[in-house]
Amino acid sequence: MHGPAGTESRTDPHWRDGPWQKAGQRLTAHRPAAAGLTVLAALMLAVAAGLVAGGGPVGAALAAGHQSLSFTLLAGLGGAALGLLWAAAAVALGERAERAMMAPAAALTGLPLALALPLVGGLLGPQRGLAPMVMVAALIAAPAVAVIARDELRALLRREFLSAAQAAGIPNGRRLRRHILPNAVLPLAAAAWTALPRALMAESLASLLGLGLPAGVTGWGTAIGAAARAGDAVALAGPALLLALTLWALHGVGDGMRLAFATAFSTTAGGRR
């Protein structure tokens, strides 16, 4: 018999790594996620450089990227925060409140919610400010985040090590701080990430219709819409390519996070009740 020795050599060179390293390794092992991270980093650098250098069609596309990406980041963060809050409140308030809160969230994910942004954009008129638009985009992204986050939290609360902590007499507050919150970080981050591509999609669609970013602010969607209406394929290429690339990267990273983190800390599958 192989004695349970703990430190003997194993085939996997990374077997000793901590859970956070292992989660990182799993994320970068997913090829679209690794590529997506690289693309996003490169894009950020390019946009920053474009702001400094400026000029030409490339500079214009990068400048538009600055607007689109800032909007996405703000709206995405807002949507993620709203969604997580939604899910956390639902789980914390007990079963009946949970059902009452999650049913509308699930129903909303099945509607063309992104159209709410051009609606609000149109109603606010061309003099609309950026803040309400960000807020609406955040609201659009929130329900999907809430649904995923609720599932993750439910799964987390069923994990056996929480029973073990209870058997060890650890009070509820400490259990929440030391065990539940740290273990919720990565799955919830994966849930929150989905707000980013949603916010970018909603903004680009609205801007393309001329009902998104306020007049005078040019995002990728605005540029694409103008080029499409003018039939100008050359002007379209830059922003369309960048937008496609960004969306692809955001999805790739999100997919990778879902695969790497949602199952990340369940060290073994299954287990009986």
Binding site: P19, W20, R159, E160, F161, S163, A164, A165, A167, A168, G169, R178, H179, P182, N183, F265, S266, T267, T268, G270, G271, R272
Partner: peptide, 23 residues
């Protein structure tokens, strides 16, 4: 209850899942 828990301990069916993976 906490004092009693010191006297009463349990072994879980899936011992690996009964440890917090982050600690």
């Amino acid at each position: 209850m906490r004092r009693a828990r010191g006297d009463l301990q349990i072994l879980f069916p899936d011992p690996l899942a009964a440890f917090d993976p982050l600690m």
